[in-house]
Simulated scan of single mutants.
Amino acid sequence: MSIPWADIGTVSTAGLSAIATWGAWLAARRSAKTAETVARVERQRWHADLTPQFNVTIERGEGHRATLSVRLVGPVPLRRLDEIAVRIVSSDDMDRTARLPGGPTQEELDAQVWGPFRFTDGADGADADGQAVAPFALEVGTGRPFSIERTRHPHWQVGPDAERHWRDQWVNEPMRLVLTCRREEFEPWVVPCEVEVPGDVRVRWLN
């Protein structure tokens, strides 16, 4: 019986060709995956480098009101933010989960601003609870003022000294904010911020 060497050679060539093709596909896949990983790392680095930088201050106002100034100071390559959403969060780290029967509900606890200031009702698109204002845009180097007012004690805290105790609770606490920032073609940035209450404002409000 003769051995079909020509056929064997053809099969061998085809097998080697298939192996070469598979190897090239595998190499291309690995290369694409590496390129994708590098691109992802680069996007994350660029996103981190462009994290918005703010200068946020409180200035004394009239009566129980003051002015919160939010200024976008950098980084310069960021150029602008299409939308900034500012929200007031608790000035302390207390866990306020409704637990007591007959006490305030979780909805009531969440609606209360736990800190020295809230956004002024009816100003700057503030919500009913005074926790947030309408989103706005800024370019680097520009800012916006917002009207804020002293918070009032919750309605479930009663007694002749309720307001005084509430005021004393926040006298040395900062105003805490979370700024959620968006710009086209980028993932959002979430920037926490603590704003010191100036001494002249604290003294005035204690009077």
Rank of each mutant, 00 (worst) to 15 (best):
M1K: 15
I3F: 15
I3M: 11
A6M: 11
T10Q: 14
V11F: 14
S12H: 10
S12F: 10
A14V: 12
G15T: 13
A18N: 10
A18K: 11
A18V: 10
A18F: 03
I19N: 10
A20G: 12
T21G: 07
G23I: 02
G23E: 10
A24E: 13
A24P: 01
A27M: 06
A28T: 02
R29N: 01
V38F: 05
V38C: 04
V38A: 10
A39Y: 04
R40V: 11
V41E: 15
Q44T: 14
R45G: 10
W46A: 15
H47A: 11
A48L: 12
D49P: 06
D49C: 08
L50S: 09
L50Q: 05
F54E: 03
F54Y: 12
I58F: 01
R60Y: 03
G61W: 04
E62D: 13
E62M: 07
G63F: 06
H64Y: 07
H64K: 07
R65L: 06
L68Y: 02
L68W: 02
R71C: 03
R71G: 00
L72P: 02
G74E: 00
G74C: 02
P75T: 01
P75I: 00
P77A: 00
L78V: 00
R79I: 04
L81S: 04
D82G: 06
D82A: 04
I84F: 05
I84L: 12
I84C: 07
I84R: 03
A85L: 04
V86I: 08
R87Y: 01
R87A: 11
R87S: 09
R87P: 00
R87V: 10
I88D: 01
D92Q: 08
D93M: 07
D95R: 15
R96N: 04
T97I: 14
R99T: 14
P104C: 10
T105F: 09
T105A: 12
Q106L: 13
E107I: 08
E107S: 15
E108N: 05
D110K: 14
A111H: 08
A111S: 15
Q112W: 12
R118D: 02
F119G: 12
T120F: 05
T120V: 14
A123V: 13
A126E: 09
A126R: 08
A126W: 05
D127V: 03
D129R: 15
D129V: 08
G130H: 12
V133R: 05
P135W: 09
P135A: 07
A137D: 13
L138M: 06
V140S: 07
G141W: 08
R144C: 05
P145M: 09
F146Y: 10
F146I: 13
S147I: 14
S147D: 13
I148W: 04
E149H: 07
E149D: 10
R150E: 11
R150K: 13
R152D: 06
Q157G: 00
P160M: 04
R164E: 02
R164K: 09
H165F: 00
H165R: 01
D168W: 03
N172H: 09
E173I: 04
L177R: 00
V178Y: 03
T180N: 05
C181I: 03
C181W: 03
C181M: 03
R182V: 05
E184A: 12
E184P: 03
E185W: 11
E187K: 05
V190Y: 10
C193E: 13
E194Q: 11
E194D: 15
E194I: 00
V195Q: 02
E196V: 14
V197W: 04
P198Q: 08
G199R: 15
D200Q: 11
V203K: 14
R204M: 12
R204V: 11
